[in-house]
């Protein structure tokens, strides 16, 4: 066997090892229930903003404190705390990916990814802006 083949095998084995380790360190997508079941573990929480509850953010007092209630498709809700500026499309988001840990009764978030309705869909929902755009009476 040539030296280069040995090196090749070692490097390929190494690469596979790296990818397998990556899978081990990977986290999971969770609902609020399953995230609460493993406090202190980093998860991707799939939820949305509970729009009936107030959002707590006061940039003048503390621009690094945001708190709101998130609710998931199963109807469970949790208080979310995020030590960063409020993502500006939070209120109109239709889905949130909250990356963080559940701890002491609240979800401590490191990163928030907001999923917003696309421009296209939004325009559809609004149904154009024609002045005579009055819904037909049935």
């Amino acid at each position: 066997m040539k030296k280069i083949h040995i090196i090749l095998l070692v490097l390929i084995a190494g690469s596979i090892g790296i990818l397998l380790t990556f899978l081990k360190t990977a986290s999971t997508y969770d609902t609020i229930d399953t995230a609460m079941a493993k406090p202190g573990k980093f998860v991707h929480l799939m939820a949305k903003l509970d729009k009936s509850q107030p959002i707590e953010y006061d940039a003048v007092n503390n621009p690094n404190y945001l708190s709101f209630i998130a609710i998931d498709t199963l109807g469970k809700s949790v208080k979310v705390v995020y030590h960063n500026a409020k993502p500006d499309n939070l209120e109109i988001s239709e889905k949130l990916v909250l990356k963080g840990k559940y701890n002491n009764g609240q979800f401590e978030c490191k990163d928030i990814q907001t999923k917003c309705p696309s421009k296209y869909k939004e325009e559809q929902a609004k149904g154009g802006t024609h002045p005579g755009n009055v819904p037909a009476k049935k």
């Binding site: 149904g127 755009n133 009055v134 037909a136």
Partner: peptide, 15 residues
């Protein structure tokens, strides 16, 4: 393109 499908105002008789 389907953009107007839900815009009655742009259709005849608002339908």
């Amino acid at each position: 393109s389907g953009v107007f499908d839900n815009a009655p105002g742009l259709h005849i008789n608002f339908d």
